[in-house]
Simulated scan of single mutants.
Amino acid sequence: MKVRFSAREAAWAEWAPALRAALPEMELAREGDPAAFDAIIYAPGGDIDDFTPYRRVKLVQSLWAGVERIVTNPTLTQPLARMVDPGLARGMAEYCTGWALRAHLGMDGYAQDGRWRTGAVPPLAPERPVTILGMGELGRATAAMLGGIGFPLTGISASGHPVPGVTVHPVAALDAVLAEAQILICLLPDTPATRDLLDARRLSLLPEGAWIINPGRGTLIDDAALLAGLDQGRPAHAVLDVFRTEPLPADHPFWSHPAVTVTPHIAAETRPATAAPVAARNLRRALSGQPVLNLVNRAKGY
């Protein structure tokens, strides 16, 4: 099995040992005759833009959960699989849980300024509704962790599949769900249907004091509408890990807005130790003619 590795140069040293350990029968290379490769391991920033010469390739395995940077490539006709990494899912769940607890407990209300503040007693977790937009792998992992604490959970799901411990609604019910979302966690993919989904009208539906936590995709929220909403207190605060332009420009108003917390796209990383076995299993399936796991639906974009 000959596999082409196409990712940023710095990724090679980290990924190659893990991939070779997980798939010892593989010949992993960074370059070579395109017609000689059986599969491609891909991440944005790699050196393949034209997939046409890779005629033998039976699978392009993405190292990222998001595939919006490759799925629209017109030369890509080979099967494409997104990465579903248990380490990434746990990392995302921990990020969302940490910030949800910060919002829930009002941790930002205790400035270290010498004032003794009393009287602000938060409700217990079972009294604080949390809403998750997107009930895929990351949404389910986040729900499992938050549910263990006791938060009542509501989810928006395009598929409508049931999720244990979550009241799942279709996208058509989004407006009604937003009106009850005291903490809103956004984990939707970047597709034409989700871009600017949270516009001025929908942001205005959030209850007073609501927080938004967005580690999903920067295109989900209308930036100007969010800033205007924050100025009016709906939402009360936004924790943003993803942006339309990354790195976020130094002069972007998100940096200076008092109701915005910017984190530098660190909510969830694909970890070679947990992701390499996932890639290895999928490559073996593809090369042996078995159905590929986590195959991307080109029409849906994920």
Rank of each mutant, 00 (worst) to 15 (best):
A144E: 14
I48M: 05
R117H: 13
A65D: 05
V67I: 11
W116C: 08
R56I: 04
G134R: 08
T118G: 12
A144V: 09
G91M: 08
H104N: 06
G136E: 08
Q78F: 04
I48H: 04
R115I: 15
A143M: 11
D85V: 08
G87V: 12
P126T: 09
P74D: 00
G98P: 05
G147D: 00
M107V: 13
G114Q: 09
P86Y: 04
P123H: 11
Y110M: 14
T52A: 14
M92G: 01
T72Q: 09
Q112E: 15
I70Q: 00
D49N: 14
A141W: 01
A143F: 06
T77P: 01
L101N: 06
A65I: 07
R115L: 15
D85L: 01
R102H: 13
I70M: 10
P129C: 05
E94F: 00
I70C: 03
G134W: 07
K58L: 12
P53E: 03
W116A: 09
M83P: 05
G98R: 01
V60G: 02
P129W: 03
L124Y: 12
T75G: 08
M92T: 00
I149T: 12
Q112W: 15
T52C: 04
W116Q: 09
M107F: 14
Y95H: 07
T142I: 00
G91P: 13
A93T: 08
R140L: 03
L146Y: 06
V71G: 01
N73F: 02
W64V: 02
L133S: 04
R128N: 14
P123N: 10
V57P: 05
T131L: 02
Y54D: 01
G98C: 07
L76T: 06
M92F: 02
A143T: 08
T52R: 11
R90Q: 15
R69C: 08
F51M: 00
A141C: 04
V57A: 14
Y110I: 13
D50G: 01
K58R: 15
G139R: 02
A89R: 13
L138Y: 01
T97M: 12
R56C: 07
L124C: 05
L88Y: 13
A65G: 15
H104E: 07
V67Q: 10
L59V: 02
G91A: 09
